[in-house]
Amino acid sequence: MILFDFGYERAATAEEAVARLARLGDDARLLAGGTDLLPNMRAELAMPATLVSLEGIACEPPRALADGSIRIDALTRLADLERAPLIAERLPMLAAAARAVGSHQIREMGTIGGNLCQETRCLYLNQRHDYQFAPPCFKRGGECCYPFPRNKSDVCWSVHMSDVAPALIALDASLEILGAGGTRRAGIEDLFSGSGLRPLTLGPAELLRSVTVAPRPARWGWGFHKSTVRGGLEYGMSVCAVALRLEPDGRTCAEARIALGAVRERPLRSPKAESLLAGSVLDPARLTQAATAGAAEANPLPHHGFTKRHLSDNLKIYLRRTLEQALSRAREEEGAC
């Protein structure tokens, strides 16, 4: 039950949604699947005066562009993404990431755009504050931080929990962002500010319109893993998404992209780990070395009751395992050629 009133407007097109946002100002929020926004409204972490619903906007199914890129409408529901034959065939990592989100119902409701634009999370933040933690924290406009009492007022160590974002970062996706002044393009990594207070770089009247992924090169392989305590119905303990491209020799790494989720205020790249891989012959020792470096540089925030040490341990193992997956896929692909 949401215990405050708000207005509700439908937009028939994305342009109209942006225009409404511009008119309504800061107090309005876009509503797509609602699976992140509505729990936050229930907890009164978000109290928008008006919701601009995107329900009425026609959603285009994922399609291949002339250059071989795949364009995904931001309003694509995660379950549709997971089931789309084009995605299963061309971007299986994205299908796996979509399949890892929440529960079946959440995937039938939530959209890829909404998943990227979700709020950061923290145990203290994500509950009603009727009698627990009554004075608001920094993120709620107050003057304290419950989990990290010594934080400065501009620091909120809440964690961005998207499962899809790391996969799209590993895939080097680009975004189409619609604003009052028209469309702009941005790399997926530019979407995230790194601040727990305002995790996204979107302007007040901007809307994420689509996600585009360039065609996969040859000798390319992926690995994805979401660590959870239970099999489903969970935010991640950590999320690893990796992509490796091999040189024609089939042993040397040409390029590595590593993205980690559920670690910090934003999904992270692992530049040190990537540089340990790029140009190197990928043997087990090298993968372990890179995974260890990746876990160390991630410097995960303790979140959802897990200690920093355990999160680092978990990242170290699963980063290595996903790198192994990616390597074996890259080699298989080469074999198939």
Partner: peptide
């Protein structure tokens, strides 16, 4: 800290 079924994990 975890007054919900996301972080109070009952078996699925």
């Amino acid at each position: 800290l975890n007054p919900n079924w996301l972080e109070y994990r009952m078996p699925t």
